[in-house]
């Protein structure tokens, strides 16, 4: 079985994301970019399945500009067998919005015909054949679901601890194949029915106050927070 893992190059998880001054998006120039942590977990999970004998090949795929190849190299250095890079340069006329991403991934999946697709965060389901057992966290416990394959699953932050890219694997990754392909070649037309009006930072949280008595607390809860 083949596992397809979608990975994404994003602003590093440890970097504070800033909105551009003109509010058209977030600042990505001169900002450290890395693989999305959810995608790392997805790659790790795919590798573990392969190491356990449940899969034969792990293919990493991404959509983005030339620099996104770095993210694929990271996946390859972790141990993925090969990679698919759907080239798309940032273009205000053809923004890469969720629907377009879904269409491209569908096209890649149709071409690669994987038994399992593991994604970082977004959920998509597809046709069925074999079976897979998946656990998912629900309110109040864990739900175990039996899925028919092929299937698409997403990962949770607590699923695993991704491995580090070791030097020998980084060396090996350099010779692994990254197939380059365009959305046009996949017959996907990137156009958008959505328009980004403005991007804003979430409202800043107000500083807390230290109270001196229980009475004061009760007063605040009643008259300011109005929860009592």
């Amino acid at each position: 079985m083949k596992i397809l893992v979608a990975v994404k190059r994003v602003v590093d998880y440890a970097v504070k994301v800033r909105v551009k001054p003109d509010r058209t998006g977030v600042e990505t120039a001169n900002v450290k970019m890395s693989m999305n942590p959810f995608c790392e977990i997805a790659v790790e999970e795919a590798l573990r399945l392969r190491e356990a004998g449940a899969a034969a090949e792990v293919v990493a795929a991404t959509i983005g500009p030339a620099q996104s190849a770095d993210t694929l190299r990271t996946a390859l250095a972790m141990g993925a067998d090969r990679a698919v890079h759907v080239l798309h340069d940032a273009d205000p006329a053809r923004p890469l919005l969720p629907l377009a991403v879904a269409k491209i991934l569908r096209a890649v999946a149709l071409e690669e015909k994987p038994g399992l697709v593991i994604l970082g965060k977004q959920v998509i389901l597809d046709k069925e054949k074999q079976k897979a057992t998946v656990e998912r966290e629900v309110d109040g416990g864990i739900e175990t679901i039996c899925l028919d394959l092929p299937a698409v699953i997403t990962t949770d932050l607590r699923l695993n601890q991704p491995r580090y890219a070791t030097l020998p694997n980084i060396m090996k990754a350099k010779s692994k194949v990254i197939k380059k392909i365009t959305p046009q070649e996949l017959n996907v037309d990137i156009r958008s029915d959505l328009e980004v009006v403005e991007v804003n930072e979430p409202p800043k949280r107000k500083a807390g106050v230290i109270l001196s008595s229980v009475d004061e607390l009760l007063d605040k809860l009643k008259n300011e927070a109005r929860v009592l």
Partner: peptide, 27 residues
């Protein structure tokens, strides 16, 4: 950095190693 590490590895100065791929790995 990669070129240096890989060369060091080929020269046998470094036996194994990892490179942080993002800031959280580095920390």
């Amino acid at each position: 950095l990669e070129a240096f590490l890989l060369r060091s590895m080929e020269d046998g100065l470094v036996a194994d190693g990892v490179i942080a791929q993002d800031i959280s790995q580095a920390s």
